[in-house]
Structures are given as structure tokens and as C-alpha cells.
Design a protein around this nucleic acid. Structure first.
Lengths: 128, 128, 128, 128
DNA sequence: GTGGTCTAGACCACT
DNA sequence: GTGGTCTAGACCACA
């Protein structure tokens, strides 16, 4: 029985990424309640504190808001904010590294364009 | 006093990447001696053990060889080996992730390739 | 959809403070009826139990009295009692802390009293 | 045996305030190492995670920086940053509330100025 | 029901 | 030596 967690990144961060992905792809909409800490902890067989930590980072970054005694909710404007900030980070941080790497390895753009385009296999984060 | 080291990746790994980059771009050629552990440690203000660990991984992967009493040297065939293995890793691990990310963010691959061509040199390593 | 409630203090306490402020400034006079729990709950979109808890604390401290079947009323003598107890608390608990903080930050008490006199109405409660 | 901790605020936050106070009053200077997580945990008889959490918030706010494998250090510029941000917060958030409170209670400025000035007794944070 | 905090103890990676 | 992460379990405040 393999778990869904990758060993290289902390679970709380992987969980955070999952939530972000769900907001980006619309499976969590603004105003929706996040599944409760306890629920997620039970579903994924992890410690509630680990879930809490993931959620807390989302709160700190204003993508999620706490309602006392009620739970956590996707903030108004979260998906726009998220899309903007993630795009910004990609275009100005990740993408330049990719370009540099392509150049460093002397790879051919056209080949990259074509070969794995049709399959777009599920990427696994982490490579340690 | 800012350092050249990124906080997100271990220093020994960043150092290893530096050496790999130097082999790939030809500033270290096959048969060349690597700068001594002590020298590097002094230059970068880091612990010699950290340098050793970086070098050791390069030895383990056969890109560098130890000559007892003399130092570390770039192995014969290292640059070819490196190029092949790094290309392999890029095409099958990194690139699919990049494609997935682009799709997730709704970005356009072709635009990315065209627009920021002039500035892509300021990439900072990190994020491992 | 922003709420009037501050996240740092419990809602029931913020509500209690509101009532106290109304008694102190005369908008609720001795003998006046407090708005019903249900009414307040509906007006502010909060749980009736939360309103009850705020009211109950006011009852416990003798500023408000319950009349069975009728509702809650501001006690006779409440405003004097309140003024005295709140002043006591301010002078011996809050004010010394403020002085300590001013000293810690190297600020000048007199300047503070003089300059921003016109704007001091925009204070938000919270920080408990 | 009473502890130094106040019951109303979480320990990690009280600890964070202690560190901030030490930076403000100069007992921790820029570049100084913070006492290690384990050391503080042992000294105060608290869990290392609790200490970690306090330190982490200071890192997130750029007052403290981590050096991998070495420890935590007061950032360059931390004391200026801190003084500026704390003053800002005091003048624009805490002080207006104090003024409003003074007005609400109908207190006399001159009395406040004089009575507790000489003693400046140690304020205790928290009042729950 | 919700989340927040703390403990005790374990294991890991890094320098 | 340093900090980071996770667990299991407890207790608390809030709605």
C-alpha cells in the first residue's frame, strides 16, 4: 500500500499544493468550505496538526479565511489572486530557470515541443 | 552581508550543481583538477565537510575521480556522461512537470518561448 | 462580503463590548430593554448562542438583568458601576502597559497626545 | 512555583515578544545568534516545537534568518525594521484605541500623565 | 461540530 | 551541534 505522499517534500506542503490546485481548477470555489482538519486527517491518515499547518499557510497568504468555530473557507478573490501570483512566480522564477537549463543542455526547442505533447503524463513533484 | 546560497536547497547540492554547470559549459574540462576542498571552503566561507560532500557525490556518480594525495579530477568522458544523464532527467522528469504547470496556469507555451528570450539569464537556482 | 467582526477576539466578547459602549455613551439607558437575542442574532448573522453568552456575562457582572419572559434590561446603577469598574481597569491595567510600550518604542507621550487628536476615531477593537 | 508564562496568550507568541523586546532594547544585536531552540526549550521547560514556532514567525517577518545547520541569527537591519514597524503599529492601531478609550471613560489627561508616572510598574500582558 | 495549543518522543537532513 | 517534520494524544475556546 503506497501512500499518495512524496518523500522529498513535507506532507503539509504537498497538501497545500493540492488545495491550491483545487482552487485553480475550480473544484474548490470562492466561499466554499475546505474539508475540516479532522476530516482530511482521517481521510489521508495523517496527523491533524499536519493538516492544520497546510491550512494555516493558506490563511497567512490570504487564500483562505478562518471563521471562528465554523471552519476554513476559500476567500473571495482567492482564485484570481492565486492565478496572478502563481503565474507571476512561474514566469519570473521558474520559467527562466527552465530556459537556462534548456540552453545549458543544448536541447532543441522543437523536439521538446513535439515529443511529449500528446501524452502530458502526470508529473510527480520532487526528485530527491 | 548576503550570501550566494539559496536557503531552499542544501549548500552541498548547490555546490555540486555549480561544478556540473562548469563541466557542461567547458570551464572545467576532462582531466582538469577541481579546486581543493580547503580552497573552496575558504572562498565560499563554508564548512569543508560541506564541500567534501558535494565532491563525494560527484565521485559516486563517476563524473569526478579522486587521486590519492593529489586531489579530485574531472573524469574522462564526464562531460558526455553528464550531458546524457542530465538530458535524460530533464526530458523525462523536469519537462513534463513544466508542461503540467503551464497547463495548470493556463499559459501559452509558444508565447513563453518567444517573449522573454533576452532576459532569461537572471535565473536563480533553488526550489529543489 | 466582509464582516464587522474582528478575528482576533471572540465574537461574544466583541458583542459584549458593543453593549458596554452603548451603555457608557448613553444610547442604552438604565431600565432600557436590550434587543432580543434572536433579533441580534439575525441582524449580525451570528449564532443565538453567541449572543446569549455575551448577554450572560453582562448579567453575571450585574450590568444587565434578566426578567423572565420579558427579556434583558440594563440594571439600575449600571452606568455608574460600569464607569467605575472600567476606569479602574484602565488606570491600573491598560494604562501602565501603554506607558511601558511607549517607553519601549522610545516615543514621546506628549507628542502622542497632541498630534493626531482629530483622527482618533478610526480605532478598531481587537488585539485581546 | 509559578511560571513566567501568562495563560491568556500562547506561549510561542509570548516568547516571540520576548525576543522582539530583546532586539529593541539591544540585548540581542544584529548578527547575534539566537539561543538554540533546544537550549530555550530546556531553559524554560517547554517543548522545542513551541520555541520553533516562535522563531519561525520571526523568520517569516524577516527579523531573524536561518543559517542551515548553524542556527538562527538576528537579521541585518532587524532593529530598525522592528522599531519602524512596531512604532507604525502602535501609533496607527493601538494608540487611537487608547485615545478612544480615554474619551469613552471620560478620563482626565492630566491625571493620567501624573499619577503612575513615577512608578511605571511592570505591566502584565493579557487580561483574560 | 470547528480550529488552536502544547507535550513527549521519534527520526531526518544539514553543517 | 543545528533546525524540520511527523505522530499520538490531550485539553481548551469558540459557535
Amino acid at each position: 500500500m503506497t501512500t499518495i505522499w512524496n518523500d522529498s517534500a513535507p506532507i503539509y506542503r504537498q497538501l497545500k499544493e493540492k488545495v491550491i490546485a483545487m482552487i485553480l481548477d475550480g473544484s474548490l470555489k470562492e466561499g466554499d468550505a475546505l474539508p475540516s482538519v479532522r476530516q482530511v486527517a482521517a481521510d489521508f491518515q495523517i496527523n491533524p496538526i499536519t493538516v492544520s499547518r497546510a491550512y494555516q499557510e493558506l490563511v497567512d497568504e490570504n487564500f483562505v479565511e478562518k471563521r471562528r468555530g465554523l471552519g476554513m473557507y476559500v476567500s473571495e478573490g482567492a482564485s484570481q489572486l492565486l492565478l496572478a501570483s502563481e503565474r507571476e512566480r512561474f514566469v519570473h522564477e521558474e520559467w527562466p530557470q527552465v530556459l537556462a537549463r534548456i540552453e545549458q543542455l543544448g536541447l532543441d526547442l522543437k523536439q521538446l515541443f513535439e515529443s511529449p505533447k500528446s501524452t502530458h503524463q502526470k508529473a510527480k513533484k520532487g526528485k530527491e
